[in-house]
């Protein structure tokens, strides 16, 4: 087998394993720690409203009277086949409730996931051309600041400035949940901007560190001595190396964007999965919570897998068989 193909397959298998473990985390977090889904759905001070018969009956109805491993197996098969079961109170199919919001959130998040690294790269180049210079100082300071602003404050400021004061974008998203992708994207501009502002600092940090390191390396120094201009050094020589630590941070980056999506959606009342998650959590709709959390983990792991493959393509050192750890 081609060694690169073998490496990719390895990564794929590893991702599968991590997804499996993530399902365990979700299961443990929502069912094992509190006892089971029913206990999770009932806080301690509300137990007075149930008799033991109620519990027995509901456990049987929800299939919770079976061994934990069987339940985990079922949940896992359900999650992997995207059959998320029924809601606890209304007995609706979970997937019907989350399908359109999921698509809308994916549209918004995927733009942020693609654009944020590009912004980070642009800022990283600007900062690396003269490390310690004024531009570097401004960009580094600005990202440190944006990193320190809660995303719900940033989002609210954006609404006030861009929608209410400047009137550039709508303040309220007047679209139905099942709006076409085009409509959703058109109205995603401001939410995506808010996501980028809170997400870019993290990537910029990684990139800048990588850049400085690469620019100080021997082979860049040799190129510098042979008269290659500084901007060329930054873009052609340092950037490809510096991008690698940034790509290695993809899992955290995607996870951060998803956390951000939940908050940003709440500010903009964006018809997405974040609002559904908040509702499900407050109502203790465990099957819906499990489904959404699992999908989020799936997105993170998928993003990370793609980044790993990109690193394989970019970095010859990783391809060496000895480094397969």
């Amino acid at each position: 087998m081609h060694p690169i193909l073998a490496l990719i397959l390895r990564r794929l298998a590893l991702s599968g394993l991590i997804l499996l473990l993530a399902a365990v985390v979700v299961f443990v977090g929502t069912e094992v720690l509190p006892g089971d889904a029913l206990d999770a759905a009932i806080p301690a001070d509300e137990r007075i409203y149930y008799t033991e018969e109620d519990f027995t009956r509901m456990r049987a109805e929800l299939g919770l009277d079976r061994p934990m491993l069987v339940r985990f197996g079922e949940m896992l098969i359900g999650l992997i086949t995207f059959d998320f079961g029924k809601t606890l109170v209304t007995r609706d199919a979970v997937i019907d409730n989350i399908w359109h919001p999921m698509i809308n959130s994916m549209l918004m998040a995927s733009i942020a996931i693609v654009v944020t690294p590009l912004v980070a790269i642009a800022l990283g180049i600007a900062a690396a051309i003269k490390p310690g210079g004024r531009l570097d100082g401004i960009v580094s300071g600005a990202t440190l600041f944006s990193y320190s602003m809660p995303d719900f404050v940033v989002a609210n400021i954006f609404v006030m400035v861009f929608a209410l004061q400047l009137g550039l974008v709508p303040a309220v998203l007047l679209i139905p949940e099942y709006a076409s992708a085009g409509e959703v994207l058109k109205l995603s501009v401001l939410p995506v901007m808010a996501l980028i502002v809170s997400g870019v600092a993290y990537q910029f940090r990684l990139l800048r560190a990588g850049m400085l390191e690469a620019l100080a390396s021997e082979f860049v120094e040799r190129a510098r001595l042979s008269g290659v201009p500084e901007w060329r050094l930054v873009i052609v020589h340092a950037l490809p190396v510096a991008v690698i630590p940034m790509l290695n941070g993809t899992a955290q980056f995607v996870a951060g964007i998803i956390s951000g999506v939940v908050v940003i959606e709440a500010v903009f009342r964006f018809p997405g999965i974040g609002l559904e998650l908040i509702r499900a959590i407050i109502q203790r709709e465990i099957p819906t919570v499990q489904a959404i959390t699992f999908l989020a983990a799936f997105a993170v792991i998928l993003g990370n897998l793609l980044a790993d493959i990109a690193v394989l393509a970019l970095d010859p050192r990783v391809r060496r068989p000895s480094n397969g750890h």
Binding site: N156, V159, A163, L164, G167, P170, A171, V172, L174, R269
Partner: peptide, 15 residues
């Protein structure tokens, strides 16, 4: 229009 959507939408002239 939940939360601030009511006043924001009115202020922006959307409502």
């Amino acid at each position: 229009t939940l939360g601030n959507a009511a006043i924001n939408g009115f202020r922006a002239g959307q409502l």
